[in-house]
Design a protein around this nucleic acid. Sequence first.
DNA 1: TTCGATTTGTTCGTATGTATT
DNA 2: TAATACATACGAACAAATCGA
Lengths: 263, 263
Amino acid sequence: MPCLTGGQLDELDDLVNAEPPLWRMIRDSLEAALAAGEYPAGTPLPSEAKLAARFGCAIGTVRRAVDELVAARVLVRRQGRGTFVPDIDAMARQGPEGQDRTAFYFFHIQPENGARVLPETELLDFRASIPCPAWIAGHLGLAPRSPVIFARNLHRIAGSPVLLDDLWLPKSLFPGLDRAGFAGRDGTVYGLYQRRFGHSVIRTDERLRAVAAPAEVACALGLDPGAPVLRIQRLAFAIGERPVELRISHADTRHHEYFNSLA
Amino acid sequence: MPCLTGGQLDELDDLVNAEPPLWRMIRDSLEAALAAGEYPAGTPLPSEAKLAARFGCAIGTVRRAVDELVAARVLVRRQGRGTFVPDIDAMARQGPEGQDRTAFYFFHIQPENGARVLPETELLDFRASIPCPAWIAGHLGLAPRSPVIFARNLHRIAGSPVLLDDLWLPKSLFPGLDRAGFAGRDGTVYGLYQRRFGHSVIRTDERLRAVAAPAEVACALGLDPGAPVLRIQRLAFAIGERPVELRISHADTRHHEYFNSLA
DNA sequence: TTCGATTTGTTCGTATGTATT
DNA sequence: TAATACATACGAACAAATCGA
């Protein structure tokens, strides 16, 4: 057993008992409410003045808490209107000519010349409920053989196939999602998750490798089997660090590239 | 000629003449000073109170400006000490046992199990001044055949070669840098740029592709020629959006992966 | 070791401007 | 026009961390 002096004990005590600043508790409280599904994408949060009254603090303290959530892309402010959970597809629909950069926040494949265009998507396969393979379950935090939804999408850019996506979703998080609902969505996949199930994706972890194209991938992308392709394994998290989707993608990077800017 | 009403003219006038908020001007002013080399990594900025006096504004306005620069990783605050340009290598040297996550902010290759370790580096080649190939010059904003410094590094993780880096630096930005100075650095390459030349890298743009390993790469990494490798093209920017380095890397991703978290 | 000066961190409050409905 | 909500800017008080006398 380690021997601690009184001073060290006091420090330990401080570390344990030190309560976080007020703005942080408010931030966490707000994030928990958002994760629980209050204030879905369309509806504004209570005004800053009302939140301040509710939490019994100054308005500046609420602003500080909201600032953090805005920085984390959990919320957006609109002057004169209110504070909202961002509508994922609204970002993509932004302007008529130049789509907003935020539309590409979760889509990193672009032509090598740098011109960004959103791809056309074709649904190749859909399974409404299959037992989850063990290694997938691990990433999603599920028990092996839990029911999952599987989908396979082919993305074309300017007509040529570039990206093949395999999606794995915990069935419990997407009750009632069938092929028609998935294929007939209006907007992006993440927009569907948000509008219909309240899962707002705000973070993704991606792991990239160069691999020899598996037969299925090569076939779908029109490549020779064994050609080098970019394999992207993405885990998507909704507000509150809840994993909602595991995606395995293979990209043909002969004329496209994966772009990542770290600021 | 388009016909505008008085109201539309007023709007246009507002758009053109609308001056940015005070905190933004202060932020830009500070960033320009930092890009010019004032307040290098070790020295603190003037205190917030003094900055407020200098700019003739309230302390809260200065704090707002500094907040932005802290969010952009241009500055760090230390309670009781002051506000600093972050020391890039100090981040890497953080604790004895667990290195700080920020050490890996610009190093994305990690073992597939996820345990992050910094690699051992071996200098394979160094040229103090060669004419810049045209396509490299374009990325660095140089005229073709401008003098550039070239270096080639091999990185090993746990003894096995994993990553081969080719670095291209504008010679004008690194006066007097020779092989001994480059190889004999204490810390990371970016730490060297910062300490010796005042270039603090705060942003990188990376473009990734899967390619068949070129002969030189295959040889250095111990792969069969043509094996799939991850090609990473990185452009590094210092404070003030100044490009300072173009890096072409090739990684063996059989047992390592490129990790990217978007929050 | 203690104390005081300095600097950032947190919280409060207020006033005014601007965008939206 | 009026009401509402966020944006900017000001000021003040105290807490917490750091450092040197």
